[in-house]
Design a protein around this nucleic acid. Structure first.
Length: 114
DNA sequence: TTCCTGACTCCAG
DNA sequence: CCTGGAGCCAGGA
């Protein structure tokens, strides 16, 4: 397989995992990267999210935050408050750029997807 | 092709 | 507690 094919599959894999995140739960870029077998590629997960807009079926990118629960990707949504609004709609409280009860709401694909 | 950037994370000081 | 550097690797200029 060539380079573009493996890239496409990596993105598809990321989207599939993100779509499996339960409503009202969140995970991190690093957790997804680790689940896909490339721990150091957390930045690529973020890059994938950057290209996730308009995907069918939709990719709930708002459920992916950084390892501390901070909404570092909020500026990539339609509006800077969109990410927080979507989370709040699912019952996730966001306080000062971060997910409240992050540890409790954290969904780890490596542990949940057995 | 090289250089730079980035929705990240870890580690050293 | 905070800062900087390194590793990561796909794209755009």
């Amino acid at each position: 397989m060539n380079h573009s094919e493996s890239t496409r599959n990596f993105f598809e894999d990321v989207y599939d995992v993100v779509r499996l995140i339960p409503k009202g739960r969140v995970t991190s870029y690093g957790a997804i990267a680790a689940y896909l077998g490339s721990r150091g590629s957390s930045r690529m997960v973020g890059w994938a999210m950057n290209a996730a807009h308009g995907q069918k079926p939709p990719v709930p990118a708002h459920r992916v935050v950084n390892r501390n629960g901070l909404l570092t990707g909020k500026h990539h949504f339609e509006t800077p408050t969109k990410m927080e609004e979507l989370l709040k709609k699912e019952g996730v409280i966001v306080e000062k750029e971060a997910v409240k009860e992050f540890k409790k709401l954290f969904w780890d694909p490596s542990a949940e997807l057995l």
